[in-house]
Write a protein that binds this DNA or RNA. Structure first.
Lengths: 231, 231
DNA sequence: CGGGTTATTGAGGGGCGTCAACAACCGTGG
DNA sequence: CCACGGTTGTTGACGCCCCTCAATAACCCG
């Protein structure tokens, strides 16, 4: 799984929360002490219930972050992409509270807790960025809670599709792309059955708001989709 | 609204996340620079969209933390009690993303951002505790998301009642107590209509799992209630 | 005591989950 | 190359859960 380690200085996520305001000397330190790995489609990166003494940063790819719900139903908490931090969702004892699986080929960098804390304690800027990252994540969870609690299926599916596009395409773009998520996965993002996802997507296709064929997705009318999703 | 300020050293939340591992000299600093206030039942403590340059700590009372959802429907994110931190849910610019309202008489201490950051930068212990507090909050949100996404109304109501008891009574106790939340509020905790809350509570009462009369609540059978709530 | 808010309860209807049958797709092996 | 089994996606029928609406009751505060 090990690959030649890329440099932090030329990383595509050079301006992510941990690297952005890190002083040069510490960045060198990170660069030397990090481990890099690549996971293939479907491979687990983190398993709920295990212990990991460190933090992962995604440098490329897409992964699904999920928890085990009730009656064997998972709930996908979020889709992680380049720049996302993984592994800080632990309980008091450090046990991972979430699972992460690569949705497509995904490269990550691993930094040990000790080093990670060291950098935080010495870099006010990094610390601040990390706090902001936590806040951003909390706000995202609040937004998702509102969606789960108050939207109907059609609205939820629209929102899920926008979430997915946002993960795969850097800017809102109208080009078609390959979604490596099943209908069940999309449903697990929003607490809806795979059948309802299928039906709703067929509906949106008929209305010319999206184009779908298998796992190829294309957004034809962002304005309409956003208005359906109550955004 | 101002009252005589109580001391941090004798605070009932002396062992909360910010005070627990704070070095004595900084605790004195906090003690001197904090502002204390008391809000009456129904009074807003924080309003979504405003700017607050600091953080609140609840020293006593209960408050509801909520966001504005769609179609005028609020969603209650959590119930805050002694030891809870308020005001760190901001967007990039520092705008508050949540509202907080006192559910019963509530006392809070306010610390300015500058001082708060100062303490964090000088106290590794406090910093660690705050990170843990963030993690705990994120995990709680994940759990609530599963509830919102996967439970039916009966299960959700059971869970809401346990959440409420947990807020009002220090230990799981079977004594009756006064809930200063309307049926609508309870519904807004779980994304359910007030009518459904009413009906389900009547059902649970008939089954001798709880006793209710108006806003007086008593849990008669914790085991049963927990099993209904999938906990 | 009366007006306003809150709670209770019932009737009705539709949204959405469940189930099932069928179609499409994919990788494997003959 | 096609055959074939397994997984995934699609579509329809059915029924129940839960939202909506409305009427009545209980409560609170002046």
């Amino acid at each position: 799984m090990k690959k030649e380690d890329p440099s932090c200085f030329t990383c595509s996520t050079r301006y992510c929360c941990i690297l952005k305001n890190c002083e040069r000397q510490y960045l060198e330190f990170v660069d030397n002490s990090k481990f890099c790995m690549t996971y293939r489609k479907g491979q687990p990166i983190i398993r709920q219930g295990t212990y990991i003494d460190g933090v992962y940063f995604i440098s490329s790819g897409v992964a699904k972050v999920f928890v085990n719900g009730y009656r064997g139903q998972p709930l996908i908490i979020s889709l992680a992409k380049a720049g996302s931090v993984l592994g800080h969702s632990t309980d008091e004892l450090g046990k991972q509270q979430i699972s992460v699986t690569a949705v497509e080929e995904t490269s990550v960098c691993f930094i040990e807790s000790k080093e990670y804390e060291d950098i935080c304690s010495r870099n006010a800027g990094v610390r601040e960025d990390l706090t902001k990252a936590f806040q951003r994540e909390l706000n995202q969870m609040h937004t998702r809670m509102i969606h789960l609690a108050q939207l109907n299926v059609r609205e939820k599916v629209a929102e899920a599709l926008l979430h997915i596009v946002n993960t795969y395409l850097s800017e809102y773009s109208k080009e078609p792309f390959e979604v490596n998520l099943s209908r069940k996965d999309i449903g697990d993002l929003i607490g809806v059955t795979k059948e309802q996802v299928s039906k709703t997507m067929a509906e949106l296709k008929k209305e010319r708001i999206i184009f779908v064929s298998g796992r190829t997705l294309q957004i034809l009318n962002y304005a309409k989709l956003r208005s359906i999703a109550c955004l």
